Computed example of a mutant assay.
Amino acid sequence: MIYSIFKNQVFIRNGSWIPPTCAKNASFLRIISALVVRYESGIAESRHWFKTSYLINTIGLSPQSAVSVSKKLHFETSKQPDTVISFLEKHGFSKAQIRNIIQRWPESLLCNPEKNLLPKLQFFYSRRISRFQLLRILAVNPSVFRTSLDNSIIPNFNSFKEFTGCDDDQVLLAYKNDSSILTRKFQSVFAPNLAILKESGVPESTIIVELVLHPRIFSVKPDKFRGIVEEVKKLGFDPSKRSFLTAVQAFLQLSKSTWERKIDLLKQWGWSNEEVVSAFEKYPKTMMFSEQKISAIMSLFVDKMGWKSSYIAKRPVLLAYNLERRIIPRCLVLQALLSKGLIQKFSLNFLVESTEKKFLQRFVIPYKDPYLLKLYEQKLGLPE
């Protein structure tokens, strides 16, 4: 508190004091207390406003983001934040990238850039990584700046590269997908799980590709990882095929409750237990799509187009395609052809899965109808 009561006297920090007769008055003390609290609150509010204003005007954060970030920082002048921003600009980070770094790591504004940031940047500069790619990835995932260079970054970088045989820029790509590639010990976290896959017959080439693209699935505890690998084997997945690791990824990413919700959802669309299992075995990503995506696509196929739910269950890859950019435009063209009696037989698989060129050659070009192409391009959002 700014004041204290001692031997019936009220002392203010600036050295003045209030005589005992006033200090004995309870009402007077309550007034003094209220004024002091208001005074201190005003100081705190002023400091908070300075930080928020700085984050908005200097860095370009939105007011909402600025308030959120300011709660994690304590600075009363712009000296240190200005030093950090100047350092990042000097090394080529754009204003948008600096803004991303601060939003993801607010404390960066208070670090010593020469000590905390420069050594990491110098290490990456020494590798065969393009400056453009380096800045872009570090702006998206600045976790490495908070990690020990000698104890973590360098040994993990070298271990990852030695195992995969990939280029330096691919190590950084893996880091972008999961920061633990460089922030957690590779030999104790990733290596045991990679060994489990090798023992199970997963080709090393497949492991390497997945490690770069989806490193997060390899960062769980080995006991849990081994249990899931064995479960996937029991379901009949072939370790030599890519779908094996996709199934492992699905089991790792989805909680039991999420599995149950998605199974219930598919049953609501008429799938049996056997069809759900069969669809997962054919295309493991089926269970990784959001419930909203599954419902939207099934509604279009079943409710609006009148196709049987069981057909989709036999061809679950149909759920993988983008609803707005592919499925809806193509279905509208098909409906137009059917309504005009221009087509009787068609393959749903070909309709959805074919390339753009093949789709146009099969469903648009032969009919020489300008309306079909215009309808299709409008739904794709292409200019007329």
Score class of each variant (00 low, 15 high):
257 S>L: 09
61 L>M: 08
353 E>Y: 06
247 A>F: 03
273 N>S: 08
344 Q>H: 03
377 E>V: 00
134 L>A: 10
67 V>H: 13
285 K>N: 14
222 P>N: 08
201 G>S: 07
248 V>A: 01
355 T>S: 11
169 D>L: 02
280 F>Q: 06
108 S>Y: 13
229 V>E: 11
271 W>H: 06
21 T>V: 02
373 L>G: 04
277 V>G: 04
368 K>L: 00
66 A>L: 01
6 F>T: 03
252 L>E: 11
281 E>Y: 15
87 F>T: 05
19 P>F: 00
45 E>W: 07
117 L>R: 03
12 I>T: 04
333 V>Q: 00
72 K>I: 05
373 L>F: 05
248 V>Y: 00
173 L>T: 15
243 S>R: 11
326 R>A: 11
364 V>R: 05
82 D>V: 09
297 I>F: 05
29 L>Q: 10
286 T>P: 07
37 V>M: 10
374 K>A: 05
226 R>S: 12
50 F>R: 06
11 F>D: 07
143 S>V: 10
64 Q>A: 07
153 I>S: 13
40 E>W: 00
205 S>I: 07
102 I>C: 04
225 F>N: 12
167 D>H: 15
344 Q>V: 01
153 I>M: 13
15 G>K: 09
14 N>T: 15
133 Q>E: 12
95 K>H: 09
129 I>G: 12
326 R>T: 12
333 V>N: 00
101 I>W: 01
199 E>A: 08
217 I>N: 02
251 F>L: 03
183 T>A: 08
91 H>A: 13
203 P>D: 03
244 F>H: 00
319 L>D: 04
11 F>A: 09
270 G>T: 01
321 Y>H: 13
1 M>E: 09
273 N>C: 02
33 S>H: 04
278 S>N: 06
174 A>N: 01
337 L>G: 08
73 L>D: 15
318 L>V: 01
146 R>W: 12
381 G>C: 06
344 Q>C: 00
263 I>K: 03
80 Q>N: 15
76 E>I: 08
143 S>Y: 09
172 L>H: 12
308 K>C: 12
379 K>R: 04
132 F>P: 00
357 K>D: 05
234 K>C: 05
7 K>D: 09
158 N>V: 12
89 E>H: 13
269 W>L: 00
70 S>E: 10
329 P>S: 11
82 D>P: 09
195 A>V: 05
108 S>W: 10
130 S>I: 02
76 E>M: 07
318 L>D: 00
323 L>N: 01
318 L>E: 00
